[in-house]
Amino acid sequence: MTTPVDPVEIDDIGYVHGYSAHETRRLGDQADTLAALLHSGTAYPPGSKVLEVGCGVGAQTVHLVTGSPLAHFVAADISADSLAQARARVTAHAPGAQVEWLQANLFELPFPDAEFDHVFVCFVLEHLPAPGQALAALRRVLKPGGTLTVIEGDHGSPLFHPDSAYAHAAIDCQVQLQSTAGGNALIGRQLYPLVTGAGYEDVVVRPRTVYADRSRPALVNGFTRNTFIAMIESVREDALAAGLMTPSDWDRGITDLHCTAADDGTFHYTFFKAVAMNPGAAEE
């Protein structure tokens, strides 16, 4: 018998970016632009059973099933609307994929112990008030010897030219708002202690770095503009309502961020990817 993990209510899991059509497009741009970077080294054997937790609108699911076309996937999310969009996205881009869709809270997954060979979690822990508990809960449904893959960003990692205190302040607004919502936009740097603390072994964490300048126009447009800056721009009203910046300082920060995507600009960001193994049943 495994040790039960206290469930976190669905209402306690906040997604600070919202569920707008704009956010759906941003997630798609992000996943497509970063697919080679983030999914390199992730492939599952034919016939293996893989759980993707927090699949959202299916932006990452498409790349998972494309990279492992003979694996069987279960994609779970707490949002029925997001699952509907995910199903449509995968049907359009990978019509033969083996995917089951499940609306569920990851703390209350309706599976027996050791149901899956592999678990994949991308951009989920940053939104949870108890990421360590989430990882421990996922161990229950992962077979002994099965693998966990976790990918998270870190909003403290951006380096850019031209540098700007106003741009950094605008980014920090997003970090503060996510913290207020119960998440952690700086979680990437914490993956190793989080994963080891949840009882996994053979934990390996490696940085996955994005660097964009005018010699890499696809990254400038797909990541700097359409992923990162678009994400920061989306919290403007909440940041101003919270009094985190004045309107004029905010607008200057966003203008300065766009300068990093100009011909003489550069932008750097670090994601972190952890791969680990479940040694066996959780302690009694």
Rank of each mutant, 00 (worst) to 15 (best):
A92R: 10
I78K: 12
F228H: 12
V50E: 10
L102W: 04
V275M: 07
F111A: 05
P217F: 02
V65Y: 13
R139L: 03
Y211P: 12
A167F: 02
F160K: 05
R252K: 10
C259S: 11
L191Q: 05
R189Q: 14
F223T: 02
A212G: 14
F272A: 09
A130G: 02
S157C: 12
P144C: 12
T260R: 00
P279Y: 05
D264Y: 02
E100W: 03
E152Y: 00
P110C: 05
D154Y: 03
V204A: 12
A167S: 06
D251T: 01
A92H: 02
Y269I: 09
D11V: 08
I171M: 06
Q133H: 05
T33V: 11
P217Q: 14
P247L: 01
R206S: 14
D213M: 01
L142K: 10
D264E: 13
L128E: 09
A274E: 04
R189V: 15
A97G: 11
S248G: 07
T270R: 08
P131E: 04
Q85K: 14
P162C: 00
R214F: 14
L34I: 01
A130R: 11
P207T: 04
T180Q: 10
D6T: 13
T147M: 13
V275S: 12
K143R: 15
E23M: 06
Q176H: 07
A276I: 02
L128N: 05
F267W: 08
D154H: 07
V90W: 06
G18V: 04
A43I: 03
C173Q: 01
D154T: 09
G41H: 13
V119T: 11
L142Q: 08
Q60E: 14
A282D: 09
A80L: 13
A212F: 00
R25D: 14
S40V: 05
P69Y: 07
P193A: 02
L37V: 02
F73W: 07
P247S: 03
T255H: 11
P217L: 14
G14Q: 13
P69K: 09
V57Y: 08
E284R: 03
P4C: 08
Y200P: 15
H39T: 06
R140M: 00
A31P: 15
D264A: 10
L83T: 11
D163M: 05
